[in-house]
Amino acid sequence: MGGTTLKPLHEVQKRTDLAARRYVILRTMSLKARTRNGQSSMAGYLFLTPWLVGLLGLTALPMIASLYLSFTNYDMINRPRWIGIGNYVKMFQDPQYLMSVKVTLTYVLLNVPIHLVVALLIALLLHKGIRGLHIYRAVYYVPSLFGGSVAISLLWKQIFGGGGLVSNLLEHLFGLQNVNLIDSPQTALYTLIILAIWQFGSPMIIFLAGLQQIPVELHEAATIDGASTSKRFFRITLPLLTPFIFFNLVMQIISSFQAFTPAYIVSDGSGGPLNSTLFYTLYLYQTGFSNFQMGYASAMAWVLLIAIAIISAFLFATSKKWVFYSE
């Protein structure tokens, strides 16, 4: 390491002006000591009350119901009849299901890392003060404003379809004739991955907010101590950003496994061409709502839940090694 030594993070952090400011506010309120041991547990449940009510009243029941339905032949109209693990067995003999697993894994493996790296790089780029920052930030968020609108689906078909922008470009540059990326089974999925990455605004915002939480004083102190830019980045910015990298990672994995909207709007719900964009939840949706096999769809959903839960548990286990919390 270089000649300068950095002070431990927590020590520098104590200097945070802001903290002192809040502390003064508290002092002036001159509150009497009321805390006793054990009160905190009650306070915990007190603050958790709305969420607990929501969990027990709105979330848990439908979840348990769907778990039960996954062991039935529920068809949305007649009473569900218990069929044991039939749905779970059927799944692994269903070629379309296996196809949807393959499509989804490809999507997750490509979308999650690229999405996050792009969002992080752009956030870092925007975080440095440059002129017109507000405008760039807004501009980069534009794609994410659209969500799953009809306009996006039309536009994507126009850009990547036959005779579209990309098709014309490839013809002029490389002389490739009649390229139709969005309607070819080999390439359709990749156009959807590009669409997902293009909508990188949400993780970018979270990174920006996270960067904002890093006290400027930390950087100032380190600069006074003579730390270089790269050293400051790797010793201060990156460690303090890890909680948000972790958050975005977990959330991107969950949402990528559940990806639905891009395929739904671009392939009009079919998952075509030739099931090449048949995402897991799209197949689940078709199974439930067009084919009335809600029991089977529920089983698929619970298998997905277990898969995501295992991956998340693994991430949480490793997070102790690389995620830095200042507590």
């Binding site: 958790l48 969990l55 029941l61 979840m63 339905l69 897991y280 619970w302």
Partner: peptide
């Protein structure tokens, strides 16, 4: 805050995010 079942309930909170919502629509 510290309270009993904190870690368990946190896990539950995350798990509720993992179920595709299409199957809870009907219930």
């Amino acid at each position: 805050l510290n309270f009993r079942l904190r870690r368990f309930l946190f896990a539950v909170m995350l798990v509720t995010l993992m179920l595709p919502f299409h199957v809870t629509v009907i219930p």
